[in-house]
């Protein structure tokens, strides 16, 4: 299956699609950095990084607007069909997920400030253990999804989508662990609520990553595999 976006007799269209693809990847790169930095700020108790995460947010938002307007222009001027249409649709959907990924990163960064910027003691490392494990998993998933969106590799997408959901398992285990910490010492409750929110955000990161892989599949093969589990249940 050919995944190339170039080859149009009217070359300018090639350029427009190429630029669109590049901008989506650029946005994905920014968002990936944001998520990583947000986690870093949490783990290293470094509130300087939080500032950078928030600054990145405006860059991501600007890119989102740019890409949306490029897509509108392509639809108006080129009336894309088949593979080109699917690419434009997939990029358009991906942008929404990327923007939300940026929001999740900002949320995590915000939680870092509430955790470390108050008069209470900082959360101990064992409370943050699950965030660290889930963070690594979520980042790996996101990185793979972005690479799939870059190289448009159907096999890798299939592998990612069929892979066992470790994030979910970690989340469940984490919740159980955190519950016992609350039972041991109720003073932990404030921290734990925040940590659960971070874990929830990381779950979302994983879901958005899966969405990105699904868009790549749609783009390359034309198969819409979203909500497969509901339709076939």
């Amino acid at each position: 299956m050919s995944t190339r976006l170039e080859g149009h007799t009217f070359r300018r269209f090639d350029g427009e699609l190429y630029r669109l693809h590049t901008e989506v990847l650029q946005m994905a790169g920014l968002v990936y950095d944001q998520v990583q930095m947000a986690l870093e700020s949490l783990q290293q108790q470094n509130l300087d990084i939080v500032r950078i995460v928030n600054e990145r947010e405006s860059q991501v938002d600007a890119l989102e607007k740019n890409i949306d307007s490029a897509i509108t222009e392509i639809l108006a001027k080129r009336s894309p069909v088949a593979r080109d249409l699917r690419a434009v649709m997939a990029f358009s959907k991906a942008v929404t997920d990327l923007e939300r990924l940026g929001d999740e990163a900002t949320k995590i960064a915000y939680i870092a400030t509430t955790l470390y910027n108050n008069e209470h003691t900082n959360p101990s490392n064992y409370l943050l253990r699950d965030v660290s494990v889930m963070g690594k998993l979520a980042c790996a998933l996101l990185k793979e999804a972005i690479e799939i969106l870059d190289v448009l590799d159907l096999e890798r997408a299939e592998k990612l989508l069929n892979s066992h959901d470790d994030l979910d398992e970690e989340f469940q285990a984490g919740l159980r662990r955190l519950t016992t910490y609350v039972l041991e010492d109720a003073r932990n409750v404030g921290h734990i609520i925040n940590i659960v929110l971070v874990m929830k955000s990381l779950m979302r990161v994983g879901e958005h990553a899966r969405n990105l892989a699904e868009y790549a599949v749609y783009m390359v093969s034309g198969e819409d595999i979203r909500h497969t589990e509901i339709e076939q249940a």
């Binding site: 299956m1 159907l154 299939e158 989508l161 069929n162 066992h164 959901d165 599949v217 390359v220 093969s221 034309g222 198969e223 595999i225 497969t228 589990e229 509901i230 076939q232 249940a233």
Partner: peptide, 11 residues
Amino acid sequence: RRKQTRIHLQT
């Protein structure tokens, strides 16, 4: 359910 219905792409 998703796990039970593994995605197989015929493309």
